[in-house]
Design a protein around this nucleic acid. Structure first.
Lengths: 153, 153
DNA sequence: AACTAAATGCAATACAGTTGCAAAATATTG
DNA sequence: CAATATTTTGCAACTGTATTGCATTTAGTT
């Protein structure tokens, strides 16, 4: 708590991360603050690798395993969620206010994964009898806005 | 081609597999015939492990790597397709007449994955601007008919 | 039967993720 | 504020799926 001059404007959403963490029953550690900050600040779902690299770039050095554990813990606490990508790696994101049921968009050009909110539950028809559906996961692939603009040079 | 007494009724769809393979430009090998037969005969998408075990049970002994390569090749030829599961394993299936765009149903009880055809392209609304969608992947989770019946003892 | 290109088997490797345990750090208590 | 109890971290070793290199074998052809 040294020198809180600027109330709420740290790079990486450090403060927000701290606040969120203090509302849990777990310990507020550098790894957790760092990871959650990175996730909050990202506009796409990040892989473990991407998180590790971003952390390093920010001067936060943490062991691979620690990151995995911090991520799992964040998911447990409901502060982040985990997406199974088509490349068989997990991706994590912590965008607030995203409902449980939403779609993921995988850009084939930049390989980033975005969470699409406001994508209302899809209307299905022709569903075979006898299947009881508990969860719906909708994955889209294509080009994200940035890449489309980049192409339309 | 020894003794073709029964025209078209082998266990495992061996003949169908052979026929399909002969229409490709590749070689018809025991591994490919066996794997494709297994896939054709299955009513769910199979993991590499399940395929290996089934193969062994049928007396077809092939190296793990050979199975992987046979599967990849079948996918290349369009005779099978590959699903990325949430458990980071690939699953393969070869059900004929399934359109490119269809849904996968993962049963949480028996852990099997079924391909749902006839599940018409979903109607989306609220899709953010700027995203160009090339592929739609719809994954459902819940209980399959068999498991539901089993529960309703 | 001989030949050639393709497929196989084996060993080694890559890579994401997990586990066990001692050392360090956090939060709590006196 | 120091002692303490508990959680978290780092390191090393380990899973398990999938891939690669290369010598050997095999399918299809001439």
């Amino acid at each position: 708590m040294a020198s809180m001059t600027q109330p709420d404007s740290l790079p990486g959403g450090e403060l927000t991360a701290r606040n969120l963490l203090q509302q849990t029953h777990g310990r507020v550690t550098p790894a957790r603050v760092g990871v959650l900050g990175i996730l909050l600040n990202a506009n796409a779902a990040l892989s473990h690798q991407e998180i590790e690299q971003t952390a390093l770039r920010q001067g936060l050095s943490a062991d691979r395993v620690t990151l995995y554990r911090a991520l799992d813990w964040l998911v447990e606490q409901g502060l982040a969620h985990k997406i199974a990508g088509a490349d068989r790696t997990w991706r994590y994101n912590a965008q607030a206010g995203i409902p449980h049921q939403h779609a993921h968009f995988h850009c084939k050009q930049c390989e980033q994964v975005f969470c699409l909110e406001n994508l209302q539950p899809t209307l299905l028809f022709g569903l075979p009898d006898g299947y009881q559906i508990d969860e719906v996961e909708l994955n889209l692939q294509g080009s994200c806005p940035d890449c489309r603009n980049r192409n339309a040079s």
